[in-house]
Design a protein around this nucleic acid. Structure first.
Lengths: 388, 388
DNA sequence: CCCATTTATTGTGGAGTCCATAGATAGTCA
DNA sequence: TGACTATCTATGGACTCCACAATAAATGGG
């Protein structure tokens, strides 16, 4: 609840922003009268604001719709194509770059495969190749980007440094902002990948509009992230959702035990879990038991977070969420003995672009913040700045 | 980040509010020039705003300080005595009502002793007697109150209803807003007592200004509450910080086990814990071991919250926090094996008025919200309204 | 085809708020 | 007493919003 106040021009800016927001959040183009009603301004003032925004390229007039009574009104829409942001997902097995417009719609993407043995320089090079591919595919160039956010595995602190990673020995300490800042001249943010997946679900996925939620990354490397009061919860040092570190939850070993179950014995570990889920779907008692055991452990850590936070929703994401038809009921059953009220549980709606899309959402958030800050102006973010 | 905008009078209102906030947050009275610098407004505008605020009784002029160069400047201060709020703590053993000014400073209080066998009607009657006593002591009457908040034991939902209580069988379902609304004509809010204690610590106590913290209520009935992003975290149904419900933490029985330790065997349970802590302070090995066991269990639940949230600070409150000199180091040791980073732990600074003060803080928050809402005016809250 | 009805657009004047600037005022210091 | 400094006071200009009246463009009925 920040009170800003200021100048008459600041007032005009605030009114422009509230008009812009109204147009952006509306599903259909709005007439001047509708916009006046939504912003609470008089019609005259809305005309001033709208012509101004139109000249600056923020909104566009669309064909008036005929057929109603009276003189047809001009209609205006938000121009989501006025600017673009870049979201990057740096994972163990892939690097994915996505370019979206200001509404978060994907325009293009670039993908480069890597693996757990890829060294830091090669991984960074892969990042740049993915970005270039996405830029080429979109027809844009680097200076057209208004913001960039990067999702990385590991714990990311407030300065955007990766501080702790389990799987990639040479990844901690990498300065992604410094690296990408050499070629990109817009604000750059770094965040943990699970956190960005949670953000994507809250903005574009099954958790649209939910204020408090726990995101579970159920996969070979379990994790969790939190959206609290509608915002990503970063924590003091970035290490949130780490309940799996409590040995009693069994999170450290639960995925391996699932892959070791008789239904998948002997298959390569990357396919094992899928086989177990398939077997369970076919009614195999051993597979069902293995999944119940997995769900039991997943529920222990989840219960710790749910009892702490009492969220409205739990989103089941990660690779295993593809088998939500089997896993979700088991998780629900396993949570019941622990929770006062088992929250709604929904499987992730977004695919493997989840993290990159969440990164784009975070970049959009920062663009927004710049607009709405007291000294910001309604124009594209200008100065290259380091964000964390 | 709510964009408001509006007409010229709304702009004036915003500028008045930012001036008011600047004066309230300043430690000393400010001159017009200083105020202009802090608000970013021109001197002329500040004069307009300030004379207006003075006429409405929000600020007062103080004697100019001589001795400097140039013409002595008028100085203005926020009038914290312009309004008052009431905070009520309804506990098992006492009802405490506190009246504070707009700065959260206690003016008067009223206290009535009750016990676990007091039935609901008598407890509600005690609430009213405590309120009347506080009013009499302050020289105010009910219509002078701008806001009321009540801290109750048990889970409190968004509608302000008490939904779940362990110790008082006839307390769930009590409609405190309806009851007090019969005699008080200002907005009334109800919240869980531990949550309010946490709020008090964040506003007036050891956690001043900390954005993310976990409040531990270490006492005969353990509990926890969270401040996240500078605001009280209520949760979807009000049941946050309930990690103690996980049987593996041992929270349900840890206090009884402490009271049962040899150092206090045979003493009345209300004094037992104090005796154990005293014995530990004197070096008694059995007492030290009992405290280590207690700290171990307290740490299990705390670790679940800390790993989930990665807070900056843990505040140790509740009755046992009087023995923080013994308990805090034990808790720190017990947390270390579980946490990546053990947060700063500080003992509560506020005494047993903690909950009532937190209630006053919450009432002040609601008064503030009314000021800063787009359609609010800079005047005392008018209409009686139910808050939850 | 013309006209009443409905809704949107355009134009004018007034009120409120903020700002820049210049001159008057009230202290201190030599 | 007179220079100096910072504050107070007054005036005019610029900007933004609003209310109201007149004009314009569509529909639908006679």
């Amino acid at each position: 609840m920040q009170v800003s106040g200021g100048d008459l021009q600041r007032l005009r800016q605030l009114n422009s922003l509230s008009s812009l927001r109204a147009l952006r959040e509306a599903t259909d183009p709005l007439t001047l009268t509708e916009l006046a009603a939504r912003t609470g301004l008089s019609r005259n003032s809305v005309i001033d604001v709208v012509t101004d925004l139109q000249e600056r390229g923020w909104i566009a007039e669309v064909e008036p719709t005929m057929g109603g009574m009276g003189r047809p009104a001009k209609r205006y829409r938000f121009r989501a194509d006025a600017g673009h942001v870049l979201g990057i997902d740096i994972g163990v097995h892939k690097v994915l770059a996505v370019i979206t417009d200001l509404a978060g719609r994907t325009l293009s993407s670039g993908r480069v495969a890597v693996d757990r043995h890829t060294a830091r320089p090669e991984r960074l090079e892969a990042v740049w190749r993915a970005v270039e591919a996405a830029l080429v595919a979109s027809g844009l160039s680097a200076p057209d980007l208004w913001g960039v956010a990067i999702g990385s595995i590991g714990v990311v602190n407030r300065e955007g440094l990766v501080t702790r990673v389990n799987d990639l020995p040479d990844w901690p300490g990498v300065d992604l902002i410094g690296h990408l800042g050499q070629r990109l001249s817009c604000p750059i943010t770094v965040e943990n990948d699970s956190k960005l997946a949670a953000l994507a679900e809250q903005r574009l996925g099954v958790a649209a509009g939910v204020r408090d939620l726990v995101y579970l990354h159920a996969g070979r490397r379990p994790g969790a992230a939190l959206i609290l009061n509608g915002r990503l919860h970063h924590g003091f040092s970035g290490a949130t959702g780490e309940v799996g570190l409590m040995e009693m939850t069994g999170w450290r070993t639960m995925a391996a035990r699932l892959e070791d179950s008789p239904a998948a014995r002997g298959t390569p570990p990357q396919e094992a879990a899928g086989l177990v889920f398939a077997a369970a779907r076919a009614g195999d008692p051993g597979a069902l038991a293995a999944i119940d055991t997995y769900a039991h452990h997943l529920a222990l850590g989840t219960a710790a977070m749910v009892l702490t936070l009492d969220p409205e929703l739990v989103v089941l994401g990660g690779g295993f969420s593809r088998s939500a038809d089997v896993l979700l009921p088991a998780l629900h059953r396993a949570l019941e003995p622990h929770c006062l009220r088992v929250p709604d549980i929904r499987p992730s709606a977004l695919g493997e672009e989840c993290v990159a899309l969440g990164a784009a959402c975070l970049a959009l958030d920062h663009v927004d913040e710049q607009f709405f800050s007291p000294d910001g102006s309604i124009s594209r973010p200008a100065a290259p700045r380091r964000h964390a």
